[in-house]
Computed example of a mutant assay.
Amino acid sequence: MSDSFVLTTDSCVDLPASYMRENNIPFVSLSYTMSGLTYLDDLGETMSDRAFYSRIKAGEESTTTQVNPGQYVDFFTPFLQEGKDILYLAFSSGLSGSHGSAVIAAEMLKEKFPDRRVVVVDSLSASMGQGLLLTHALTLKNDGATLDEVARWLEANRLHMCHFFTVNDLFHLYRGGRLSKGSAILGSLIGIKPLLHVDNNGRLAPIGKVRGRTGAINALADFVEKHGVNMDRQTVYISHGDCLEDAEFLAAILKRRFRVPKILINPVGPVIGSHAGQGVLALFFVGGSRGGKD
């Protein structure tokens, strides 16, 4: 195991808090605000995911805040004081300015710690897609890979982390500027469910639409057939916005169709959930490419 550097990330990995503790992975928390109160996204430790989505479902709005450079300086400094270098895997720069803040902080710390390094890698990923990338990085680190070797692997393989998802509430996409109000109203009336992915620039992009929730879940599985590789040897991740039954239904389809040996299901955290809404269902796996419109 290589312990000459610290592998770190942020709360948008949407992995279980227990996993982060057991594997000694420090993370910095993005924040969200509801009814005038600001909370840290600490992977469900302060506010449970169910409580968060219950408030969203009841009509309460949530806004999010990126991590600023000063917060990153505070996060990185203790590790540098211990004589450790840092590899930080950041939430996609296409979805948040937090990556840019981390880069600024790394530059700020060079003068105080000239013999130490803070390497920031843009995951170009989100939610458990970022989490999937992190777990692969952890395996490499535990096998003795150096900081530079892990960083190079992350940059070479991040676009193989496929993200496909659907949402239940079209009005969250409308509020986020990704759908017109008229389309949101019409789509809701006739049961249209959008299909989206995270593209090669780390941004959300629509790639299709289907009728009905079951149709959307089956369409997510179809993306595995189109883009997945060696599915019978992969661990696949599914994240959800308080719709565990749908996540389990999708997992059963994947096991039946592709003989996926292991599937981890976990809630979408409040930062991403603030934009995706209750009922978001997302699928993450390693593929030949991230795909897009066929």
Rank of each mutant, 00 (worst) to 15 (best):
S4F: 10
L7M: 01
L7V: 01
L7S: 00
T8K: 01
T9M: 00
D10G: 01
C12S: 05
P16F: 01
A17E: 01
A17C: 01
M20F: 00
M20P: 00
N23E: 05
N24V: 00
P26E: 00
Y32D: 02
T33N: 14
T33S: 09
L40C: 10
L40Y: 14
D41Y: 04
D42P: 08
G44M: 02
G44K: 03
F52P: 04
I56D: 02
A58K: 08
A58C: 04
E60W: 03
E61P: 04
S62M: 06
T64Q: 07
Q71H: 10
Y72W: 06
D74V: 07
E82R: 07
D85E: 12
D85H: 05
I86R: 02
I86V: 10
L87P: 12
Y88E: 08
Y88S: 07
A90V: 09
S93A: 15
H99K: 11
S101G: 09
S101R: 06
A105E: 06
A106V: 10
A106H: 08
K110T: 14
V119K: 13
D122A: 04
D122L: 02
M128Y: 00
Q130G: 03
L132F: 01
L133C: 02
T135Y: 02
T135W: 03
T135P: 04
A137I: 01
L138W: 00
T139C: 12
G144A: 03
L147F: 12
E149F: 05
W153S: 11
L154M: 10
L154F: 08
E155N: 15
H160D: 04
T166D: 07
T166I: 10
T166K: 04
V167N: 11
N168G: 10
Y174M: 14
Y174K: 13
R175E: 13
R175I: 08
G177N: 06
R178F: 04
L179V: 10
S180W: 03
S183T: 08
A184D: 06
G191F: 07
P194F: 06
V198F: 08
V198R: 05
D199N: 15
N200H: 03
N200L: 02
A205E: 15
A205P: 11
I207L: 15
G208R: 03
K209D: 06
K209P: 03
K209H: 10
V210K: 02
G212I: 00
G215F: 04
I217Y: 03
I217R: 02
N218L: 06
N218K: 09
L220T: 05
F223P: 10
E225G: 14
H227K: 11
H227T: 09
G228F: 02
V229S: 09
N230K: 08
N230S: 07
M231F: 10
D232F: 09
D232N: 14
Q234R: 03
Y237I: 03
E245L: 11
A251K: 13
A252C: 13
F258E: 09
V260G: 12
P261H: 10
K262H: 15
N266C: 10
N266L: 05
V268P: 14
I272D: 06
I272T: 11
S274R: 03
H275L: 04
F285W: 09
F285I: 07
G288N: 12
